[in-house]
Structure formats: structure tokens, C-alpha cells
Design a protein around this nucleic acid. Structure first.
Lengths: 135, 135
DNA sequence: TTGGGTGCAAATTGTTTGCAATTGT
DNA sequence: ACAATTGCAAACAATTTGCACCCAA
């Protein structure tokens, strides 16, 4: 039995075919950030007969379970990526749509500091850099 | 003639009643970040008969003209705020929903630097801190 | 067996668009 | 006068939900 199944069980989710398949797609895709539609099409390409509604339901359950992270980059739709423990932020190339991940301890620390200066505790954050290739 | 009208003309927009009213609402509201619906309801409350579609059209025109800034905080809908020249980021209290503005040159500089390190030029960014009040 | 899970179609939500009527300039 | 602008309703896109059927435990 594959590793994913343990993850699903641990999350209190029954190990069903759609859930396993979706998790596999998220984990095996070389593009790490996929929209619900992307996952749906990947399923169809793989010959799996799963409804789009199910994809949305499952992705939301995965998010709740902490298995995936949902991002709301510019432009309406959400994208999902498998959670791998270490936190990182994103850079999106406005020209190609390519998503690059990065992490910067200094920025992370400054955020904590700023929140504290205002009498708050940092609960989370969203940082997205929109960039263009240097000529 | 009010100041707003100059702004509208400068933006190449005819000075029409809906546009003037919407600009006034954005400028006079004590809550600085309003959704299209918020603006629409404010118009109705003020007895103005403006269509929701017009609110969306006008807000988009204002954004293009640089008069307002559109934000996509968590949760589907966009919010707008009047642009006042100086750039700033946002902190959202997850408990109260309150929005606090802040600015940090160090973070701004780090962003440019990170983009450059990856061979990109920073075109824009979105930074939102989700925070909780310190006990 | 049986309650959770799924597919499908219909419903929602936020936003955009076509078009005829209206209004600044 | 004339093009820009608006209102309304219909069109859209992304996502959610109701419900009868299905299947993992």
C-alpha cells in the first residue's frame, strides 16, 4: 500500500480512488502549482473518470487536512500545491506565468517584527512577487 | 468644482455623476478598503441610482487610471482603496477583519534583491500579514 | 450493512458584456 | 450633435451544493 494512503487515513479520509489519484497527480506533476481544472484534465488524460466537483471537494478536504496549500495568485482561480513542511513564498513571472519558489529568513523575521510593533502576533502571511525577466 | 473632477479629467474620463459619486464614497469612507458591493450599497444608501455593473466598470477604469488600487485579499472578492501616492502593504486581523496598513523599506529592498537574484525585475508584489491581537 | 463518497446537473457568487437609451462636452 | 457612458439583463467563470446512487470499511 502506497504512502499516500497513510496520509489520507491520518487525515480521517477514506482511501478512495479519486482521492488517491488526485494526490498522486499533485505529487508527481513537475509543475508544482495546479488549478482544480489542471488536476481535472490530468485525471481525464490518465483515463480516470472523476467529476470536476469531486476534484474541488477533495482539494478542499486536502487543504483542511494540511496535505495541500491553496494559493490565490492574481486572476480569479486558486492553485494548489502539496505541502512539504518547509514554508516558502512565490514569485510569478507575469510574462510566462511561471511560478518560482523562494525563502528569505530576513523577510520572515521582519514580518514577525512588524506585526509585534503593531501589537499583533503573526498568524500567517501571503507574499507574492510579480516579476518580469531581466533583458 | 470639486478636486475629484480634475482627477477624473486628468485620467481622460468624462466627469459623470456615477464616477464623481463613486470617487467621493471611496474618499470619504472611514473604512479605506471597499468591495464593489460595498460601494454599490453606499450609493443606494446615499439615494443614488447607479447600477452595480457601472460600479464595476468605473472601479476598473479608476484602477487603470491609477486612482485606486485593487487588492485580492483572501476570499474571492476584490477590494478597492483610493491611491494616495505612497505604497504600503497590509495586515489583516483574522479576528476582527480590521485592515492595518504598514510600510517597510527593508522588506521592499529585499524583494527587489530576491527578484534580481533569480534573474527577474520586480513588477509588483502583494504582501498581506494575517495577524491576531497579542494577549 | 451503511455512512461516507461520488457524479451529475443545477445553483451561487463575483464579475463582465451586449445593446439600446442617455448624457457630458 | 456625437461619442462616451450608463442601466439592465443576459452571459460568464470559478466554485459549491442537492440528491440519488455507489463503494470502502
Amino acid at each position: 500500500m502506497a504512502v499516500e494512503n497513510q496520509d489520507l487515513r491520518k487525515a480521517g479520509l477514506k482511501v478512495t480512488l479519486p482521492r488517491v489519484k488526485i494526490l498522486q497527480i499533485l505529487e508527481s506533476s513537475d509543475v508544482r502549482h495546479l488549478s482544480a481544472e489542471d488536476v481535472y484534465r490530468a485525471l481525464l488524460d490518465a483515463g480516470e473518470d472523476v467529476g470536476l466537483a469531486t476534484v474541488y471537494r477533495v482539494l478542499t478536504q486536502f487543504e483542511t487536512a494540511g496535505l495541500v496549500i491553496r494559493h490565490n495568485f492574481d486572476g480569479g482561480h486558486s492553485v494548489f500545491e502539496v505541502a512539504r513542511g518547509e514554508h516558502h513564498d512565490h514569485m510569478v513571472c507575469v510574462e510566462s506565468g511561471k511560478v518560482i519558489e523562494f525563502h528569505n529568513d530576513e523577510i520572515e523575521a521582519l514580518q514577525e517584527q512588524i506585526a509585534a510593533e503593531h501589537g499583533y502576533e503573526l498568524a500567517g502571511h501571503s507574499l507574492v512577487l510579480y516579476v518580469n525577466p531581466l533583458k
